[in-house]
Simulated scan of single mutants.
Amino acid sequence: MDLDDLADRLERAADRVGPEIDRTVQQQGRRLRALIQGRASGRPGPNVITGAYRGSWKGEPFGVPDGGGVEVGTRKPQGRRLEYGFMNMYDSIGRFYRQPPFPHVGPSVNELTDDWPDPFKAACDRIFGGA
């Protein structure tokens, strides 16, 4: 490695950090959304009746300094009840429920977490490999 060129190489790499991290985070957000939707397609997760719940899962990107973020979620009110269950409870209009949990978010997050370092290692390779 030529040390005379090191400062220029580091400068070029620094310019790539934000875009590469943002790209990787958005990619992982899309992957998490797909995993959740896949698990919300029948047992052991919730059954599909109309597909509206499964289709309601969205990834909302947001900016952060030198990178990006993504929030994956649903605005459907049944999301929490499907994930955690609603055992021996009354809802807000007095209906009694004995609904077991159908986890689909937690297992998806756990699966993604196990593979989380690899995409970011690849991003580092892209950042510093092309310097």
Score class of each variant (00 low, 15 high):
11 E>W: 01
97 Y>A: 02
71 E>G: 09
10 L>A: 12
128 F>V: 08
97 Y>W: 14
120 F>T: 07
112 L>M: 12
38 G>V: 15
117 P>A: 08
50 T>C: 04
22 D>M: 03
92 S>K: 05
52 A>V: 13
98 R>A: 06
11 E>N: 12
73 G>K: 02
63 G>D: 14
94 G>K: 08
65 P>Y: 00
22 D>G: 10
3 L>V: 15
87 M>K: 10
113 T>M: 10
40 A>C: 06
72 V>G: 05
124 C>K: 00
76 K>C: 00
26 Q>G: 10
115 D>Q: 11
99 Q>F: 09
50 T>V: 02
126 R>V: 07
25 V>P: 03
81 R>Y: 15
110 N>D: 14
71 E>Q: 13
3 L>Y: 13
78 Q>L: 06
29 G>P: 00
91 D>R: 05
5 D>I: 12
63 G>R: 12
1 M>G: 14
32 L>R: 01
111 E>W: 04
32 L>M: 07
107 P>F: 12
104 H>F: 13
79 G>C: 10
129 G>E: 05
88 N>Y: 11
53 Y>T: 01
57 W>L: 08
48 V>A: 07
120 F>S: 04
30 R>W: 02
101 P>D: 00
125 D>R: 04
36 I>F: 09
51 G>E: 15
47 N>W: 14
74 T>N: 08
55 G>P: 05
72 V>D: 05
128 F>T: 04
129 G>T: 02
80 R>S: 09
88 N>H: 14
23 R>E: 15
107 P>E: 05
83 E>H: 00
120 F>N: 05
124 C>A: 15
62 F>N: 11
87 M>D: 02
90 Y>Q: 12
25 V>T: 13
98 R>G: 00
88 N>T: 03
102 F>H: 12
107 P>Q: 06
63 G>P: 01
20 E>P: 03
27 Q>Y: 14
58 K>D: 10
96 F>E: 01
47 N>K: 13
38 G>R: 15
122 A>F: 04
12 R>E: 15
124 C>S: 08
122 A>D: 04
102 F>G: 03
41 S>F: 02
22 D>P: 05
79 G>A: 06
30 R>Q: 13
48 V>S: 07
76 K>Y: 07
84 Y>K: 00
8 D>R: 14
125 D>W: 00
60 E>M: 09
81 R>D: 01
75 R>E: 05
71 E>C: 07
28 Q>E: 15
100 P>T: 04
107 P>K: 01
100 P>N: 07
55 G>M: 13
98 R>E: 11
85 G>I: 01
